[in-house]
Every structure is written in C-alpha cells, then in structure tokens.
Design a protein around this nucleic acid. Structure first.
Length: 341
DNA sequence: AACCTTATCAACCGCCATACT
DNA sequence: TAGTATGGCGGTTGATAAGGT
C-alpha cells in the first residue's frame, strides 16, 4: 500500500495562482505565520490548494524580499563557482544569494547561465568534433606506459578547455588573464574579496592517492570517471565533458558528489564524480594549502558546515595562487601551481 | 496572418530525511 | 522500534510568450 496523499487531490486546485489566492495566503501568513504546518494551512486560510503548493508559492514568490529578474554578474559568478564545487544543490546555492530562490536559480542556470558559459566558450571556427578531439588526446594507456611522463595540466587542458595554458605554468603571468570565457575569467581574475568572496574559495585540488583524475564537466574543473581511457563527449562536438584516468584509484569515501551518468561517445557509460577539496590558505608558501592538510569534502548536507568550509578557505590577501597535486604510478607527487591575479 | 519552434519560468511530482506518534 | 506525516529538495513538465518563417 502506498503512502497516503498529503491532500485530497480531487479537491485541490492546481495551476497558476490567482491574485486573490495570493492575497489570501499572504494575509493569512502575515497574521498567523505558517504555524509550522503547511498541510493544514490551506484549509485554515480558505484556500483550495495543497499545502505543498502553498509552501512553494510562499517561498518562491510571495515571501518578503524576494528578488526577481536580472541576475548580476556577481550573482552569475557565485552560482558558477558553487555549481562547480557542489553541483546542483540549488538550495545551498540560493542560501548564498539573498533574495533568490532555489527555483529561480535552477531555472536561470538551466535556461541561461549554462548556455552563456558554454556558448561563448568555443567560437564555431575553433570547435573540434568529438572525433577530432579524441584523436588529439594521448590515450591513457600510453600515458601510463610512459610512467615518468604524467601529462601536464597544460596538455590536459589545451584541447578542451577554457583555460589558458599560461595559467598552468610555474610562474604567474605578468599581466592579467584575459579570456572570452566568463568561467575562466571569474576563476582567474577575480580578486575582489570584499564583494565576491566566494571566488577565492577553491582552486586547488589533489588526490590523496592514486592517479590524478582531472577533467572538466560543462566548463567546470572536475574529477572523475570510472573508465580507464581519457574520454570526452559532446552532442555538438564542442566537447563539454571529459575525464581522465582511473576512478578506481580514488577512495570512495573521498567522493563528495556523484553526478548522474553520462553516455559517452566512446561507448563508456561514465559515472562522473566530483571531489571538492577546500584548501586552507597558506599564502606564505605561495600556494594555499598543503596536500596533506587538505580536507576532502565529503557529503555535506549541512549548510553550516558548507558555509564554514567556504569561509575557512577564503583567500585573505593578494597572494592568490592555487596548486594541483597529483601522483603518478610510482607515487611521485607532482605539483602544478595555478596563479590567478 | 497563420503556423511552427524555441525560450522561459511557475508549478508539480516524487523521492528522501527527519520528526512525530 | 516501527509506521506515518511532513518538510524540503531537485528534476521535470506544461502553459505561455516571443521570435522566426
């Protein structure tokens, strides 16, 4: 036997809310609050609506200080940063944007922001087909055969990335990073901690053991893939997803987030996984964090915990750089420092 | 003007975690 | 402790608007 429905489906109104209903709900909550019980609220308020529907209407539309309309550049950046870090956990993302609802952000991401990021990324004349891209990659088997030759981050990113390779060199660029890609720009160029503190929360990552597994998903730096071969897929050949390495080398308990499966053009059904690694600031040494000190973000359902992590990892001065650490088969640790000015 | 396609976003659905009994 | 109710969340849908042919 299934669960009893929360309301009498036959007797509740569905669809768009009328101004009259809005007024009733607003007035009732203004007078009595929600009473901690949404299910019984519609009856008390004289509404023929499901309690859940009332809750949604209030939270997403009627409650005070809701912001509708255009998202600012700063909001875009925060959304992108958080999405890159925690995925589609819209309620957490919304909690960082006062006045915005999770629904709004979700819609905005799905309809505009995602396209904005992906669209600008690859001018059509620079796009490669998936086949072209894959043939340009060095297969992982070859990489592994050359045990002393881990692919550099530059190699990994050159073909399928918004990242400019000079940001992956040992020395910082003399001038500011410029890119037509907004994600790259906000990752690398934003230094205004007072207005955009979240930008600086995380750009270093490492694997605790095993092969580096680094790639990019929808223009985001990501880790994962349980396939052994380097892979990349895209419906339009622009290559929006890729992964490298062997996911089996990563401890399961270090997985913070599991993306849904993505069919890959090489035949692999790849489960992309995403590790968060909030490094603590260690500007004195020119990079933030020591790989041994990095906490790897586990499953964070607790908002306060996430907030703490975010605030803990803010860069507090101008020495902005991040380091990648990864190991090869022989357990040699490689470091790549990424500077953003 | 009529039709078709695409974009937008409010609202719904179903699942899950937690509180309550 | 088990069963049920509720809140909260993310994914998805569908109505409508806007733009294109």
């Amino acid at each position: 036997m299934g669960r009893a429905p929360c309301c009498d489906k036959a007797n509740v109104k569905k669809g768009p809310w009328s101004a009259e209903e809005d007024a009733k709900l607003k007035e009732f909550i203004g007078k009595y609050g929600t009473g901690g019980n949404w299910i019984s609220l519609p009856q008390k308020a004289g509404l023929r609506r499901c309690g859940k529907s009332c809750r949604l209407r209030w939270l997403n539309y009627l409650r005070p200080n809701i912001k509708h309309g255009e998202f600012s550049e700063e909001e875009d950046n925060i959304i992108c940063t958080l999405y890159a870090n925690i995925g589609s956990r819209w309620s957490i993302i919304a909690s960082q944007l006062p006045g915005r609802t999770d629904n709004d952000i979700k819609n905005y991401w799905n309809t505009k922001l995602k396209k904005k990021l992906m669209g600008i990324n690859y001018p059509s004349n620079q796009r490669k087909t998936t086949q072209q891209f894959q043939s340009s990659l060095q297969p992982t088997s070859q990489i592994q055969a050359q045990s002393t030759m881990m692919p550099t981050l530059s190699q990994l990113f050159t073909d399928c990335s918004p990242f400019s390779t000079h940001h992956l060199q040992a020395n910082p660029p003399s001038s500011g990073f410029e890119s037509s890609n907004p994600l790259s720009n906000f990752l690398f160029n934003n230094t205004n901690c007072s207005t955009t503190p979240l930008f600086n929360q995380y750009y270093g990552f490492e694997m605790q053991d095993g092969l580096m597994n680094l790639g990019r998903y929808n223009n985001m730096v990501m880790f994962g893939g349980n396939n052994e071969a380097a892979s990349c897929s895209s419906s339009d050949g622009s290559c929006s997803q890729m992964s490298f390495g062997n996911m089996n080398e990563i401890k399961q308990e270090n997985m913070s987030y599991l993306h849904q499966s993505y069919p890959l053009t090489n035949g692999y059904e790849d489960e992309q996984k995403f590790i968060l690694d909030y490094g603590s600031t260690n500007c004195g040494e020119g990079y933030f964090g020591n790989p041994n000190q990095y906490p790897v973000l586990q499953d964070y359902d607790n908002l306060e915990e996430v907030k703490q992590l975010i605030s803990r990892s803010r860069i507090s001065n101008n020495n902005n750089s991040g380091s990648f650490y990864f190991n090869n088969d022989e357990n040699k640790t490689y470091q790549r420092t990424m500077y953003f000015d």
